[in-house]
Design a protein around this nucleic acid. Structure first.
Lengths: 349, 349
DNA sequence: CTGAAAGCGCTAACAG
DNA sequence: CTGTTAGCGCTTTCAG
């Protein structure tokens, strides 16, 4: 039995309800009532309790409370993104945070690095900590491992990439449509010789963008088999090298589509290096900071990560509040922003 | 008394140790031993327990365990940054995360928006959740409110900005030195007419940069009183307007220093708009994506957010592991990256 | 309006 | 090697 003795000098221990109760001269339950704003406490008693709590700098322990409490909420949420050090993910994160704080919920954020193993570990870590809900960007090919958790009623919403093997909500960009739009934009300027620079083929979004781009070309009668499709470019350096090879080849493209942020940066570098940035059209997927200050300005298909994050978070809270509607797949459209590089006409025709 | 009855159909409840113990035909303590890898369990018994745990998809509840456990760690850390949607903060966050995962610790991240009230709320939210340590970027003028928590032994490390009113570690950039370096760089090209574009004067870092820049000019014999110092520029638009006014004025600067990311973007826009980007020197504080692809390339004083984050996290874990060394103020140096804009000589001389 | 007793899921301390 | 008992800090239940 703890003695609840006088204050130990030095490292003051964390006060509990019992300390407050003793100081205020009431029972623990009364402190609990005051702390939780429950009714049926005499104003004078409440004041004494509050004074004692303040004097001790008492902070209720939500973990202890939750153990016995009926709803058992931790007021915590797990967010898994590609990497917290990534502008797209940062915008998603911020939107999620803004919705979460409104609900008094704190956000655990983890980076995925597009590694299936990290995905499993991060999700396990979230679940161990009993988060109330999960917002996930995935790297694995199948998320059936979430089944038991879903059956327990934990809300899970996928963001940016769609789930496989589980029935639950997803909020994604219109990758197919956005890439098709980029193709049409270039076709409208009269281009016939294209190149496609793609991200990891293992990523669903990358495959959707590729399909969208190529199908649009196909519809326009471009012989798609002849279009160089370079994939698995995951960083600027790989992308730069790939485009340099194409530019130095026998039949360089007059129009380039880069399917992602980092790939776009690499493509830009390659074009500069060969002095082709003013006569080769370029459209990138994802908007980039300073895109308007380049010469020419960079034309992009912009995603709306804030919307993805906000909507995903709202879905989680809706489910937490008992919304039992069937799983939805919410598609957020993209926006083509013309700034110059995508409006360059074909050269050498 | 809970009946521990047969599986309820539908929303399967979360299994506890007692469920596992019953299914494996052992006592709860034995399950605890197996789950925690404690010694003295017969291999055969351990196997039965593990099978039962797997069959039920059992996950131990760390909150319940912590209640009784001696060390009482939540394996959780609170990180407060300017905004999670901000490249600098993202890099800090990622570095902190990398150190944290190595220790099996999850990170709560919150955005500050340079608002003292949000700072207090975020810190309170972290503390309520009993984080093991705190890494904080601050907006308030005084952090004495952390005293009680520090006395309880919670490790707190400040990052990017130094604390006031409390004795604890801080990891900051060499703001003074970096800004001075920028001034010297411009002076070396022969500039005599400068302009200083600064962030919110309320921010300590902004004040240090200003001092560093102006003192270096002063040392070089530049009449500092004549240098236009425009402060409280917190976004690109304000910065752009401020520089436009200077450029349109009677005595436009030949060299500009912008004290932060967003301010730099605004300055770049203003220079373009007046067609002065090739004859006005510009050095920005903070590196920016695509800076090398601008024309001219953007010269910056780069900070090293990954180092700030990593070192701050390491300090937290050191303290958690009993390191009782006195508070340190760790200064991470900056790096001037010359890319063109800062090497433009004075025009019209 | 107030409080005593029981118990949340787990671990500490001690038996066997 | 295994189990029993108590109790972490709080809420629930129920009795004053």
């Amino acid at each position: 039995m703890t003695s609840l003795s006088e204050s130990d000098a030095g490292s003051s221990a964390r006060p509990t309800m019992r300390h407050v109760a003793k100081l205020a001269g009431v029972a623990v339950k009364t402190v609990s009532r005051v702390v939780n704003g429950e009714p049926n406490v005499a104003p004078e008693t409440a004041r004494r309790v509050l004074d004692a709590a303040r004097a001790l700098d008492y902070q209720p322990d939500p973990h202890a409370g939750n153990l016995r409490r009926s709803d058992r909420r931790t007021r915590t949420l797990g967010l898994l993104v590609s990497s917290v050090d990534n502008p797209f993910a940062g915008a998603v994160h911020r939107a999620v945070e803004d919705v979460a704080v409104e609900h008094g919920v704190a956000v655990f954020a983890s980076s995925l690095d597009d590694d299936p193993e990290r995905e499993r570990e991060a999700v396990a870590a979230f679940l161990r900590r009993r988060v109330d809900g999960l917002i996930l960007t995935t790297a694995s090919t199948n998320q059936a491992y979430l089944e038991p958790e879903l059956r327990r009623g934990t809300p899970v919403v996928f963001v940016d990439r769609e789930p496989r093997g589980v029935e639950t909500d997803a909020v994604v960009s219109d990758n197919f449509g956005g890439a098709a739009r980029a193709a049409e934009h270039l076709l409208a300027r009269g281009h016939r010789r294209f190149a496609y620079l793609g991200d990891l083929h293992s990523l669903q979004t990358a495959r959707h963008r590729r399909r969208g781009f190529l199908e649009a070309l196909d519809h326009a009668g471009i012989p798609v088999a002849d279009v160089p499709v370079i994939e698995d470019l995951h960083d600027p350096e790989r992308a730069r090298e790939a485009l340099l090879r194409l530019l130095d080849g026998p039949n360089p493209p007059t129009a380039v589509f880069s399917s992602q942020n980092l790939v776009t940066v690499g493509a830009l570098r390659a074009l500069r290096e060969r002095g082709r940035h003013r006569d080769t059209a370029l459209v990138g997927f994802d908007d980039v900071e300073l895109a308007d200050l380049l010469e020419p300005g960079l034309t992009v298909v912009a995603q709306h990560p804030e919307d993805l994050g906000r909507i995903a978070a709202e879905r989680v809270f809706a489910k937490l509040n008992g919304d039992g509607s069937p799983s939805q797949r919410i598609v957020v459209s993209t926006t083509l922003i013309a700034r110059g590089s995508g409006e360059i006409p074909p050269s050498g025709m």
